[in-house]
Simulated scan of single mutants.
Amino acid sequence: MSEEYRAKVFKSGNSLALRLPKALGLKEGMEMTVREEHGRYMFEPADLAPRKIDLTGIVGSMPWLKPLTREERDFDDSPRDWHLLDGSSPDNDRP
C-alpha cells in the first residue's frame, strides 16, 4: 500500500510551486515531468539527457589509430556541377 502525504502550493516568483515532503526521497535539482489527467496530477522523474561516451580510457589500446595532422584534416573541394540545379547548360551563358 502506498503512503499518502499532504503538500502545500505556494507562490515562488511569478509561478506556483509545490512543496513536497522529504520522505519522498527527491533530490534538489531533479527534473520532473508533470502530467494532468482528468483533474489528477501525476509527476515522475524526467528522462535524463543522453550521456556522451568517454573514450579516453581506450585510446591507448588502439595504436593504429593516430590523430590526423592539420594537413590531413584539410580537404580539397570536389568539383560540383551547379548548373544541373537550375536546369541550364554550362554552354549557355546568362547575363
Rank of each mutant, 00 (worst) to 15 (best):
M1I: 14
M1V: 14
M1T: 13
M1S: 13
S2E: 13
E4W: 07
R6E: 12
A7G: 15
A7C: 15
A7T: 11
A7F: 06
V9E: 11
V9L: 15
V9S: 10
F10N: 10
F10R: 14
K11S: 08
S12L: 14
G13T: 04
G13H: 04
G13F: 04
N14E: 14
N14M: 11
L16G: 06
L16K: 06
L16P: 03
L16D: 08
R19S: 15
L20W: 02
L20D: 01
P21D: 08
K22T: 08
K22N: 09
A23L: 06
L24E: 03
L24D: 03
K27P: 02
E28K: 04
G29C: 02
M30W: 05
M30I: 00
E31D: 06
M32I: 14
M32E: 04
M32Y: 04
T33C: 03
T33G: 00
V34R: 01
E36P: 01
E37H: 12
E37R: 14
G39N: 03
R40H: 05
M42V: 06
M42A: 08
F43M: 02
F43V: 00
F43C: 01
E44A: 06
A46N: 04
A46W: 03
D47Y: 00
L48H: 08
A49D: 04
A49N: 02
P50N: 00
R51S: 10
K52Q: 13
I53C: 05
I53N: 06
L55S: 08
L55W: 09
T56K: 09
I58C: 07
V59W: 02
G60P: 00
S61W: 08
S61N: 10
S61D: 11
W64L: 12
L65R: 04
L65S: 05
L65W: 02
L65V: 09
L68T: 07
T69N: 07
T69K: 09
E71R: 11
E72N: 12
R73F: 07
R73N: 11
R73P: 01
D74G: 11
F75Q: 13
F75C: 06
D76N: 12
D76C: 05
D77Q: 11
P79D: 02
R80F: 10
D81Q: 14
W82S: 15
W82Y: 15
W82K: 14
W82H: 14
H83F: 15
G87R: 03
S88Q: 11
S88A: 07
P90V: 01
P90D: 05
D91E: 13
D93F: 13
R94M: 07
P95S: 08
P95Q: 10
